[in-house]
C-alpha cells in the first residue's frame, strides 16, 4: 500500500513536470483552433484531465506534447460537433488543414499578447476607440454602429482592416 502511494506520487510528479514543459504548446494549439479563451481553457482542462487519467498508457519514448495535441484535437473535434448546430463557418476538410498547421506554427502566446498591446497603441485614436468599444466594452457591431453613426457594413470592413493591420504589426514585433 505504502509502495503504491509512493509510486502514484512519483507518477503525478512526472506528469506535472511533463505538462509544465508542454502545456503552452498544447494550449497554443487549442487557442489556434478555438479562438475563445474561455472555451480554450475548458478544452485544455478536459484535455489534461484525459491525459492525466490515461497517463499510464503514455509511452515514455513518445513526445508528450504530440500526445497531448492529439488528445486536444479529439476534444476540439467533439467541441466542434457539439457546436455544429451553430453552422460552423469552417468545413471539416478545411479544419483538418488548419489543425495540421496549427501545431507547426505555434507562436508563444505571451509574446503575441505583448506584441498585440504594442500594436494597439500604434493604431490611430479612431481605430483604438473601435477596438475599445468592441473588445473592452464588448459592444456589438450593431451597437457600435449606433454610437459612431456609421453603417455596420463599413464597420465590418474597418474591423477586418484593423485586424489585418494588427496581424502584420504583431508579425513584425515578433520578428524583432
Amino acid at each position: 500500500m505504502v509502495e503504491s502511494q509512493i509510486s502514484l506520487k512519483s507518477d503525478d510528479e512526472l506528469f506535472a513536470s511533463l505538462l509544465d514543459g508542454n502545456r503552452k504548446r498544447i494550449f497554443g494549439f487549442i487557442l489556434s483552433l478555438v479562438p475563445n479563451l474561455s472555451d480554450a481553457d475548458d478544452l485544455l482542462q478536459e484535455t489534461v484531465l484525459i491525459m492525466w487519467r490515461k497517463f499510464d498508457q503514455f509511452e515514455a519514448d513518445k513526445c508528450f506534447a504530440t500526445w497531448g495535441v492529439g488528445i486536444a484535437y479529439n476534444k476540439i473535434l467533439q467541441f466542434r460537433r457539439s457546436q455544429s448546430k451553430l453552422n460552423l463557418p469552417i468545413s471539416d476538410e478545411a479544419f483538418e488543414k488548419i489543425s495540421e498547421k496549427a501545431d507547426i506554427i505555434n507562436i508563444p502566446l505571451n509574446d503575441t499578447s505583448d506584441a498585440l498591446e504594442v500594436c494597439i497603441k500604434k493604431l490611430n485614436s479612431k481605430d483604438q476607440a473601435l477596438i475599445n468599444l468592441k473588445y473592452d466594452h464588448k459592444e456589438k457591431i450593431k451597437d457600435i454602429s449606433d454610437i459612431v453613426k456609421r453603417s455596420a457594413d463599413s464597420l465590418y470592413k474597418d474591423f477586418s482592416r484593423i485586424h489585418n493591420m494588427l496581424r502584420i504589426c504583431i508579425d513584425r514585433q515578433l520578428a524583432k
Binding site: F27, S32, P35, P108, S113, Y135, N164
Partner: peptide
Amino acid sequence: LKLIRTYGLLNQRGTQDSSMLSESDGSMP
C-alpha cells in the same frame, strides 16, 4: 491562423480571462 490568434487575443480584452495572459509566466494557467 494568425488572424484567428489576433481575434482570440482581442476577444480576451476586458474580460477576467485576460488576466491569464498577463501572468508572469505568460499565457495560460
